[in-house]
Design a protein around this nucleic acid. Structure first.
Length: 567
RNA sequence: GCGCCCGUAGCUUAGUGGAUAGAGCGCUGGCCUCCGGAGCCAGAGGUCGGGGGUUCGAAUCCCUCCGGGCGCGCCA
């Protein structure tokens, strides 16, 4: 929909004879709602127009009086503040949300694009810990955001299914493993074997040699090695898929590292043909000193390739074979340099789309201030965290709403929602010190708070007899009090927040937005009677409630949370 | 040593050059004969890490220092 900012910008731009985009960038929300619904500081125009900000603001204020959408325009120092015509705005906003939430949120700016998103990407035979939550849920949210903005997406799980660690896994399993025990709980058992390997290898370095031999066998296609490796993958996948099912996460492709084994020679050949490879300390590298980066190693001194080579092959595959015009990697910030190198090498290889590659980095997850370490067996299983949160939700339901139908399904939605939202609401670059007390708290700025608000809105609408996809038409809003207006005004900002979230690949903006929206709704709900209002008002308030319900549900979906109608 | 990221209330944080720095948790005190109290309201709590600068205006931009994190060729 047409935003109020652009209406203001258009008029101000015409009056002042300055470009509309310049005006648009300056428009802000006044710090105090009595001042107005939008504000335009005029200080910036003073120099070019050779007039005082106050004078400019005064001129604008009087010119904007006549604009239909504005109820008033006043000068306040160097600012001009406008109030919207409330009844007109409320009617338009509520109607448009109900008509088409998707269209209200998005103008489908990415139509025609196809974006590949690499997210989650856990390692085979390793636990899926809380740390993986970040890549998984930020990635999933980005997929939904981009799709909502019109893009096609290709979600890729780049499983860590190759590398020398599998030699260790095989050795440990053959020495100390038991098939039945592993089958019971594959990931935990394999991790135990892996940790034991590292402990014993300290005293007996020959184990490392054995591990190397077994990995070599795997590379050479040794039947036993391949069979064990595939078994590890199968068992790990079962466990991962269980977690993905719980989280509601899915992928278009599971393409692990091993998928590119036969695609790396072509990369090496191309780099060599293009004269980008140089010999250095026994290895072959792409020199990046011109860009102040260390060289990117392509072929190790033992002749083997390395992850950079693999990632290059993967990037080419995603672009050339999967048809993506833009690549996104949702990977921890410790790999920032690697991706800078990767994108630079792609550019030097003559791939113009290298400029459209993005590394969506995020801070590290810690526990009690300490780094989690798979190798030392220091792991918090995401599955455990989710189950605890679900238990917590279940006991709250038993206490507050014991007659609820589908208690288990709701407990799952709320418990998982709490964990997911908790991770999505903050700036992803921040380090996270994982604390159960935060995740298991369902009050305040949390997923359950948003879900609760949604359920509340559903409840009112249900009592009013509104059908599931019903729409309530209102011809004109009569009285729009402050609480109602604050809610409408916030609703109207959905589109600009959505676009910022897409542009920044930052789901936390939407998480913050929906928290604010819920807060405004709860205040409205608390103080403004809906069902008991007189017929006309009742209809207006129900329509507004319905619009909120729809938008909250939509945003929860984008963030990967369910929206139960009762809880 | 070099590079990147982070530093805002006891804790977690919002804020992408504009007006009096907003929230949540925790704490204190209110609000269910009224649409769901996982809620609402109020209170206490801030030298926006320190210091310089740019600007009419800086938590925000630049410089510098301090504290923390992550990287810095054959792991991914």
């Amino acid at each position: 929909m047409r935003t109020y900012k652009s209406v203001l910008a258009e008029h101000a731009s015409r009056v002042l004879q300055v470009p509309e985009t310049d005006v648009l960038a300056l428009i802000e929300y006044p710090p105090n709602r009595e001042l107005g619904d939008l504000a335009l500081p005029c200080f910036r125009f003073a120099r070019t127009l050779r007039r005082s900000p106050q004078e400019i603001a005064a001129e604008l204020a009087s010119a904007l009086q006549s604009v239909d959408a504005f109820a008033s325009a006043t000068q306040a120092g160097g600012y001009v503040n406008v109030h919207f015509s409330r009844s007109q705005a409320a009617q338009a906003v509520v109607d448009q949300v109900q008509q088409d939430v998707d269209g209200f949120l998005s103008s489908r700016r990415l139509a025609g694009h196809r974006v590949a998103i690499d997210y989650s990407s856990p390692n085979i035979a390793k636990p899926f810990g809380v740390g993986h939550l970040r890549s998984t849920m930020i990635g999933q949210a980005i997929v939904r955001l981009l799709e909502a903005d019109g893009s096609e997406t290709v979600g890729i799980n780049h499983l860590g299914d190759w590398g020398t660690q599998f030699g260790k896994n095989i050795v440990a399993y053959l020495k100390w493993g038991d098939e039945e025990v592993v089958r019971q709980d594959p990931v935990r058992e394999l991790l135990g074997l892996y940790v034991r390997f590292h402990e014993e290898a300290k005293a007996d370095p020959s184990l490392d040699d054995e591990a190397r031999e077994w990995f070599k066998k795997l590379e050479d296609g040794d039947e036993r090695a391949v069979q064990l490796w595939q078994w590890f993958i199968t068992e790990s996948r079962k466990v991962f898929d269980e977690t993905y099912r719980l989280l509601g996460v899915s992928f278009d492709y599971y393409l692990g590292e091993s998928f590119y084994n036969d695609k790396m020679q072509a990369v090496v050949d191309e780099l060599r043909d293009k004269g980008l490879l140089t010999h250095s300390e026994g290895a072959e590298v792409v020199d990046l000193s011109e860009w102040n980066m260390p060289p990117c190693i392509i072929v190790k001194s033992d002749g083997a390739t390395i992850y950079a080579t693999r990632d290059l092959a993967a990037a080419l595959y995603r672009h050339d074979e999967l048809g993506a015009d833009r690549l996104i990697y949702v990977v921890g910030s410790e790999q920032t340099l690697h991706f800078q190198q990767l994108f630079k090498v792609l550019e030097r290889m003559g791939r113009p789309w290298a400029g459209d590659c993005r590394h969506v980095a995020f801070g590290m997850m810690k526990y009690n201030g300490e780094r989690l370490s798979t190798r030392r067996g220091k792991v918090i299983y995401l599955e455990d965290v989710l189950q605890q949160a679900i238990q917590e939700a279940k006991s709250i339901i038993e206490a507050k709403n014991p007659n609820l139908a589908d208690k288990d399904a709701v407990a799952k939605a709320v418990g998982v929602g709490a964990v997911v939202f908790n991770d999505l609401k903050n700036d992803r670059m921040h380090e996270v010190d994982f604390r159960f007390e935060d995740v298991l708290n369902f009050d305040g700025e949390t997923g359950p708070y948003v879900q609760y608000t949604h359920a509340r809105a559903c409840s009112v609408l249900r009592k009013a007899g509104l059908k599931d996809d019903g729409k309530l038409t209102v011809d004109a809003y009569t009285q729009v009090d402050d609480l109602t207006w604050n809610l409408v005004h916030h609703l109207a900002q959905a589109n600009e927040v959505f676009e910022r979230a897409v542009d920044d690949l930052d789901p936390s903006q939407l998480a913050r937005y929906v928290l604010d929206l819920c807060h405004h709704f709860n205040r409205f709900y608390h103080d403004v009677p809906i069902l008991s209002a007189a017929a006309q008002l009742r209809q207006e308030r129900l329509a507004l409630t319905n619009a909120c319900r729809m938008l909250i549900k939509k945003v929860l979906f984008l963030l990967g949370l369910e929206a139960p109608e009762r809880m």
